[in-house]
Write a protein that binds this DNA or RNA. Structure first.
Lengths: 208, 208
DNA sequence: GCTGCCCTCAGCCTTTTGGCTGATATGGCC
DNA sequence: GGCCATATCAGCCAAAAGGCTGAGGGCAGC
């Protein structure tokens, strides 16, 4: 006892079981609860007050991981949240860090990496997987390539296959404005067609 | 002993641990080995001759799950392969079944579902998650919506954002032929722009 | 108060795309 | 042999998208 109390949040039971099994090998860590949704996570944080929350970002319908992180941070009860997810999309990383995540691990991380991140989190140190760190670094070096909120909104709709006219209707702006936004988006993503933009958005920005 | 011997194949250690922990609760099942790649899986099938192989489809670089299934089946040593993956894309399901998979489970499946699938597999029964089954059924009802090999090839390149001209060059066909294929693809996917086709391809057909 | 960024819009012109119709060749299947 | 699916190509036309220039309003920061 007296170890680091951990709450696991993932909608896949196998992943929770796997994490639980891994953490069981560490004498200083105790998994005190598991949640399969953002809503459930919030409740369990309240009732168990764990030191660290290990959370997936993608969790089916309902509250997503980002929102869950935000709300947990808003409780003001001092939990450190570690993101543990499959994808390292630029957008997800930025949003997670913005929401107050203390670390960002990929699911193919080595056990030691996971342990180190959890221990670091309780000490206020931020730990992230190398690929994640390099992406963050990349973003900081080229702030010109970061999409504005409006652009991100448009890109998100773009990935649904809408035409400029439809995009305009959806966003209550003229087709001319849509084209302006698109031109900016193309420049930032380094493409020159909407098709390539969609491909890049889904693959690199993680807009599924 | 004397239980069902199982080989786990997944590039994520947590998932393997989770499955191992789950299967450990079943007296009639023994995880005899774990692999983190298709190549490794093939080796371990040879050396351990498990009764069932539980395999993820997405596994980083190298041999993918589909190819691994095909090669395991080609060994002729009688292994039943169960797909255990996150996504239920039409293309993946069809290809997995074509390659000789005995079942197709999603990672959010309940433990009982997993156990039943493994027991079913050794008895020659095919078990799949309800969403997967319904997709297969859907495909069988509307064979008109199945893409031809050439169309699938083109669609795959399309998701990389290529123009018609580039597609033609890549496939050594004229732009006119590209347009013909695209028209057929649009019809089968139920869309009318390349943007929507890309969106659908990535989301429904799982062309990541 | 000026500067810079974001969001908005317009016009013009070229390229690309999509819809349509029709045609040829190939290979498998009955 | 005839049928059918697949793959290949052409031409024509309308619609959509993309590149370019220019411009106005709002708002934060210095």
């Amino acid at each position: 006892m007296g170890g680091i109390t951990v709450l696991l949040v993932d909608d896949h039971l196998v992943v929770r079981s796997g994490l639980r099994a891994l953490l069981a090998t560490q004498p200083d860590m105790d998994v005190v609860a598991e949640a399969s949704s953002g809503e459930e996570a919030l409740q369990l944080v309240r009732s168990h007050a764990p030191a660290v929350v290990v959370m997936d970002l993608a969790m089916g319908p309902g509250m997503d991981g980002i929102e869950a992180i935000r709300q947990i941070r808003n409780l003001g009860t001092g939990q450190s949240v570690l993101v543990f997810t499959t994808y390292d999309s630029d957008a997800d990383i930025v949003r997670a860090v913005d929401s107050g995540a203390m670390g960002y691990l990929l699911k193919d991380a080595a056990p030691e990496e996971i342990f180190a991140a959890i221990r670091g989190a309780v000490q206020g140190r931020s730990v992230m997987s190398p690929p994640v760190a390099s992406r963050l670094f990349q973003q900081m070096r080229n702030p010109d390539e970061v999409l504005t909120p409006r652009e991100a909104e448009l890109l998100s709709l773009l990935t649904e296959g809408l035409s400029n006219r439809e995009l305009g209707r959806r966003l209550f702006i003229s087709e001319a404005t849509v084209k302006t936004h698109l031109a900016h988006i193309y420049a930032k993503l380094g493409v020159d067609t909407r098709a390539a933009a969609i491909a890049t958005a889904i693959r690199r920005e993680g807009m599924r």
